[in-house]
Structures are given as C-alpha cells and as structure tokens.
C-alpha cells in the first residue's frame, strides 16, 4: 500500500480516503489544524504524528484527515506556519494528488487582529482581513502588523 516512506513505514494506520499533510515544520501540527478550523469539537477523524524523523527535514509533523479533501484556499493558509508542507489527497488508499502550499495574498477570518481598537474586533459583520507581506500580516482595516507568532492569533 503505502510502504514507500523511507523511515520504514506508516506510524499510523492507512486511510482509505482523505488528506495527508506531510512535511509540516516540526511542532506545528496542532497549529496547522487550528488554522484549518479543525478542533476537538469538529467531526473529522484525525491522526497526528509529531517530531517524526524525516530525511529531508530532520524532524517533521504529519497530519492525516479521513474522509475530507482539503480545498486549495484552505491549504494555502498552512503556508503561513509550515511553508514546506505537502498536501496528499488519498483516494482508495492511493495518493492521487500531491501539491505544495502557496502563501496566499490575503487571508480572511483566520487570524484575529491583535489591535483591541480594530473594527474587526467588534460585533460588525466583517471578517478580519490581512494582506500577507514579507514582514508579516498587515490588517487591511487598522494597518496593524503581526510580525511573528501568527499561531497565537489564530481565531
């Protein structure tokens, strides 16, 4: 089935259909799930492996999500935390599609603006909106700049 993994096999049981997010920066698996909006209270069946040996990266994290194929706009958020991540779409136990993640130009409703005075932190019917710049995430409403620790600001 999926015996190609050079570390000598799957750490978790294979899935029939779903998504494998591989080559996640070590330690970021849980944040990757958060940025996808997947929490303990959502329904997905998940397996998570962290700090797995990887030829390419030293250590990496892997997330497997059963019965859900992630869409491009969902996976691109992952690039904010784990730019090397690879998305594998699994159908009938086989990898049918493999794609990298690309940093999106704009992210909506994923990260909360840290500025308490920002209009997006009120009951107004708008989602937080950041443009992604080299130096960080720039709030398109209040001009706040999130320079690091993006994971801490995930909604």
């Amino acid at each position: 089935m999926t015996r190609k993994d050079p570390s000598g096999g799957l750490l978790v049981s294979p899935i029939k259909n779903g998504t494998v997010i591989d080559h996640i920066t070590a330690g970021e698996a849980l944040n990757v799930l958060r940025i996808l909006g997947i929490t303990g209270s959502t329904r997905e069946c998940l397996s998570i492996a962290t700090n797995v040996e990887s030829k390419r990266m030293g250590k990496k994290d892997i997330v497997k999500i059963e019965n859900r194929e992630l869409r491009t706009e969902e996976v691109d958020r992952i690039a904010l935390l784990a730019p090397q991540a690879k998305i594998n779409i699994i159908r009938d136990y086989k990898v049918v599609e493999k794609k990298g993640v690309e940093i999106p130009e704009v992210i909506r409703g994923v990260v909360r603006c840290p500025n308490p005075g920002c209009i997006t932190n009120t009951n107004e019917p708008v989602a937080s909106t950041f443009e992604v710049l080299d130096k960080g995430l720039h709030c398109l409403y209040c001009d706040w700049l999130i320079k690091d620790d993006i994971a801490n600001h995930i909604i």
Binding site: N115, G117, C118, I119, T122, V126, L140, Y141, C142
Partner: peptide
C-alpha cells in the same frame, strides 16, 4: 468620524 480603527474602511464596504 468613529472611535474604532478601520471603521471608515468598513463603512465604505
């Protein structure tokens, strides 16, 4: 004129 930052951007939408 509004006390919240970004209020005018929101209003324009």
């Amino acid at each position: 004129r509004h006390p919240k930052e970004g209020a005018a951007r929101l209003a324009s939408e």
